[in-house]
């Protein structure tokens, strides 16, 4: 469904990705693991056209996404949830959802509220007044409103309390059951283990490992070398 082929990318003037290749197949959850600054975010942003891709190709459902404007990528069915959430803090919860709304799409305000019941009760609250966990829900819900078939989540568990992280994992699995393909970046291996079918490890802008989480678990050296704790 999504394929990155030898992608080279720059963030501002610094070269971040050095030939990243990875793929996500229809209906699977793929996790991109690695440390701060390893290139996880940049990889996801390169799909969205938010960083300068200088070489390689990014193919979604058989069509290249290179040189395609960001809003068009979204309209083709790729949803992106950024690391820092970027809620529109002056807008109400409902208005945040309306920004991404598509007429005739499968996801409506009612349907996302069914998935995140908490949001329904916060309808008229300002986005900026929500807690971290609520903001994370809102930012995922907001992206769902664009009716993505592929969902990119950038470090979704970061900064959330353990209880919330558990709920988040359930949400991701629920979305998988809905038929979404999901690529997420993570530093938290335990979280990845809980939600992902496959994992990649990225380090210094290069893919160092690709395989199942069981294979990753089996390789102590790999984890010590490339992952945090």
């Amino acid at each position: 469904m999504l394929q990155l082929r030898e992608v080279q990318a720059y963030y501002g003037r610094s070269h971040v990705l050095y030939g990243v290749s990875l793929e996500a197949r229809l209906g699977e959850v793929v996790c991109l693991l690695g440390r701060n600054g390893a290139g996880k975010s940049t990889t996801l942003k390169s799909v969205m056209g938010l960083v300068d891709v200088t070489a390689g190709d990014i193919v979604f459902e058989g069509r290249s996404l290179r040189e395609v404007p960001t809003h068009e990528i979204t309209r083709r069915g790729v949803g992106f949830v950024p690391e820092d959430r970027r809620i529109f803090s002056d807008l109400s919860v409902r208005e945040n959802l309306e920004v991404g709304a598509r007429a005739g799409g499968a996801w409506t305000v009612e349907r996302v509220c069914a998935l995140f019941p908490k949001l329904a009760s916060l309808d008229h609250q300002r986005g900026g007044s929500l807690s971290g966990g609520e903001q994370q829900m809102l930012t995922i819900a907001r992206t769902l409103m664009t009716n993505p078939r592929l969902l990119l989540l950038d470090e979704p568990s970061e900064g959330l309390a353990p209880v919330i992280v558990r709920a988040l994992a359930d949400t991701i699995l629920a979305l998988k059951r809905e038929g979404l393909t999901i690529v997420l970046s993570e530093q938290n291996v335990k979280f990845a283990r809980r939600v992902a079918d496959r994992a990649y490890i990225i380090e210094k802008g290069q893919i160092k490992f690709a395989g199942s989480l069981a294979a990753l678990d089996a390789d102590e050296g790999l984890r010590r070398a490339y992952l945090s704790v």
Partner: peptide, 24 residues
Amino acid sequence: TRWGVLIRAATQDREMVAVLGVDQ
């Protein structure tokens, strides 16, 4: 209006508005 929502959203974060599929 929805247009107004988009305008207020863009005033805060233009890039995010594009990420949500709005033609800037």
